[in-house]
Simulated assay, not measured.
Amino acid sequence: MAIIVIAEDEFLLADMLASILEEAGHEVRSAPHGAGALKLTRTHKPDLVITDYMMPLMTGLELAQAIRADADLANIPVLLVSGAQGNIGRDNPEYFSAVLDKPYTQAMMIRAVDELLSHSGSS
């Protein structure tokens, strides 16, 4: 079981994603914006952070930059899930471990999560 932090400002999407991940056996913490997700990340030291791009208070890119700038968090994989800004993630591999474009299937999400967790040594 991995601890996963989700940053997603659309409640229904965050709830759906949390359900998918919890059914797969993971512990999930969610925040409606990057600033909240950064606080959760600092508190829980998750195995993975999944973030949307466009959010209030702090974008997914700003969240990923803050994680990489913190020595205690820098090795946590960050998955960008975005409908229109996927290219930003692909153009910034130093911040994002992977990019998953919306819309995605449940199988695609689980596969991406499993791959990132296996590379980081978490499960």
Rank of each mutant, 00 (worst) to 15 (best):
residue 2 A to P: 15
residue 4 I to C: 03
residue 5 V to Y: 06
residue 6 I to G: 03
residue 9 D to V: 04
residue 11 F to N: 09
residue 11 F to T: 15
residue 12 L to S: 15
residue 13 L to M: 10
residue 14 A to C: 12
residue 19 S to Y: 08
residue 20 I to C: 06
residue 24 A to N: 15
residue 25 G to H: 14
residue 25 G to N: 01
residue 25 G to K: 12
residue 26 H to G: 15
residue 28 V to N: 00
residue 34 G to N: 12
residue 35 A to F: 04
residue 35 A to C: 02
residue 36 G to Q: 00
residue 37 A to R: 11
residue 39 K to T: 08
residue 40 L to E: 13
residue 40 L to M: 12
residue 41 T to G: 00
residue 41 T to S: 00
residue 42 R to C: 06
residue 46 P to R: 05
residue 46 P to Q: 07
residue 47 D to G: 10
residue 47 D to P: 07
residue 49 V to T: 05
residue 49 V to R: 02
residue 49 V to C: 01
residue 50 I to E: 03
residue 52 D to Y: 03
residue 53 Y to G: 04
residue 55 M to C: 09
residue 57 L to V: 08
residue 57 L to H: 05
residue 58 M to E: 05
residue 60 G to T: 01
residue 61 L to S: 06
residue 61 L to T: 10
residue 62 E to K: 05
residue 62 E to S: 08
residue 67 I to D: 00
residue 67 I to M: 05
residue 67 I to Y: 01
residue 69 A to I: 02
residue 69 A to N: 12
residue 72 D to C: 14
residue 75 N to S: 05
residue 78 V to A: 04
residue 81 V to M: 11
residue 82 S to C: 11
residue 82 S to G: 07
residue 83 G to M: 13
residue 85 Q to M: 14
residue 86 G to L: 13
residue 89 G to S: 12
residue 90 R to H: 09
residue 90 R to I: 05
residue 91 D to Y: 04
residue 91 D to S: 13
residue 93 P to Q: 08
residue 93 P to Y: 10
residue 93 P to L: 14
residue 94 E to K: 09
residue 95 Y to L: 13
residue 96 F to S: 03
residue 96 F to R: 03
residue 98 A to Q: 14
residue 98 A to I: 12
residue 99 V to Q: 08
residue 99 V to D: 01
residue 102 K to P: 13
residue 107 A to V: 14
residue 111 R to G: 09
residue 116 L to F: 13
residue 119 H to D: 08
residue 122 S to Y: 06
